[in-house]
Every structure is written in structure tokens, then in C-alpha cells.
């Protein structure tokens, strides 16, 4: 029993952009940074309808697999002015995007190595609490096959919902597609963290 009870979650509601959508928070790095890539996706509800009032947040390590945070004890290098946080509110078509770099591999529990991944928070009107998921990359076949979180999911169809697919480059920038299905046949794998 805690001395202090935690603060409960409530929905962001329909007007979330007033409070949360300032600045170019989709750009974890600038487009001209070496290794920059684009992630594009849609958020869908249980009937396959786009969700135009969602907010996606990402948190990731830098290209060396280092988090810009005092609780990362590893020796990997920090990258100047790379923080690893991004935020994108969906547009009227349910579309969100990020420009970032692929993170390096981060150690997992029990001497494992995780595949490159982003931690993802999904907020929306109609969601009383965020859902947590992860984004992995389809061109990291070897690393993905060794990832303890991916490997903890038996159903290949469910596991694949976490993997962003590499699509055609756009203006010379690698592009990945990552759709989020809140419910339904293609429902994204969400985590209890």
C-alpha cells in the first residue's frame, strides 16, 4: 500500500490539440540529419474508421542505443541535441508522422539485446487511458528475431502489428509504414507496463 495514491488517467478529449500540438514535435531530428527516416501511419477504430483526434508520442534511444536520461547506466555515447522524444497529433484522416533516426540496440533484461525499437504512447478522445505499444523495423530481421519482447508474443499475426514496414523512399529518405488499430481483427499489440 502506498502512502500516496496515484493520480488517475482521464481522456484527452476532442480538444487535445489546444494543449498539446505546439511546434514541430514530429521532428525528433531535422530532415537533413544523417540517417533521418520517416514514419507514417494511421490510427483506426474498431470499425476501421480513421481516428482524427489521437495523439501519438514516441520515446527512443539514439543511434548508439543510449537514452538521454540519468537512469541509463550504459557507456554508449550521447548525441548532441538528440533527446529522443516526438509527438504527432492525427489529422482529419487519422494520419500521423515522425522524422527520426533508427535507434541502436538497447540491452534488455537478463543479458539480452533488444532490437531497435521506439516506445509508443497512444492517446485519443474515447480512450480513458493511453495504450502503450512499441514500433520495430521490418528491415531488422536478425535483431527482431532476437528481441525478448517480440519473442514473448506467440501469435505471429499479433507480433507483426509491432513491426513498421519499409516502403519506398521519399525524397531520398527511408520510409516506414506503421498503422495503429485500436480494436478489431488487426488490433495492435498493446502492453501492460
Amino acid at each position: 500500500m502506498s502512502e500516496f495514491g496515484i493520480t488517475a488517467s482521464q481522456t484527452v478529449g476532442p480538444f487535445l490539440k489546444i494543449g498539446l500540438a505546439q511546434g514541430d514535435q514530429e521532428y525528433v531530428v531535422a530532415e537533413n540529419v544523417k540517417g533521418a527516416l520517416r514514419i507514417d501511419g494511421h490510427v483506426y477504430d474498431g470499425q476501421g474508421q480513421p481516428v482524427p483526434d489521437a495523439m501519438i508520442e514516441i520515446w527512443q534511444a539514439n543511434i548508439y542505443g543510449k537514452y538521454d536520461h540519468p537512469d541509463d547506466p550504459t557507456d554508449a555515447e550521447l548525441v548532441k541535441s538528440f533527446y529522443g522524444f516526438g509527438r504527432s497529433c492525427t489529422d482529419k484522416n487519422g494520419n500521423f508522422f515522425f522524422v527520426t533516426v533508427k535507434p541502436g540496440r538497447v540491452v534488455g533484461l537478463g543479458n539480452t539485446l533488444q532490437a531497435p525499437h521506439l516506445a509508443v504512447n497512444v492517446f485519443a478522445r474515447g480512450m480513458l487511458k493511453q495504450q502503450v505499444t512499441r514500433l520495430y523495423f521490418s528491415d531488422e530481421i536478425q535483431a527482431n528475431s532476437e528481441d525478448p519482447v517480440l519473442n514473448s508474443i506467440d501469435d505471429a499475426g499479433v507480433r507483426d502489428t509491432l513491426v513498421a514496414s519499409k516502403v519506398n523512399d521519399e525524397n531520398g529518405m527511408p520510409c516506414y509504414k506503421f498503422n495503429i488499430h485500436l480494436q478489431g481483427e488487426m488490433e495492435t499489440a498493446f502492453f501492460d507496463v
Binding site: 477504430d45 474498431g46 480512450m127 480513458l128 499479433v158 480494436q183 478489431g184 498493446f190 502492453f191
Partner: peptide, 13 residues
Amino acid sequence: TVLRSPKRLPIKI
């Protein structure tokens, strides 16, 4: 919430 709530239980990590 009816169409925006996952049906599967979240996976504990």
C-alpha cells in the same frame, strides 16, 4: 470508448 478500446488484454512486460 466502445470502438476505441482493445479487445485483447494488454501483454505484460
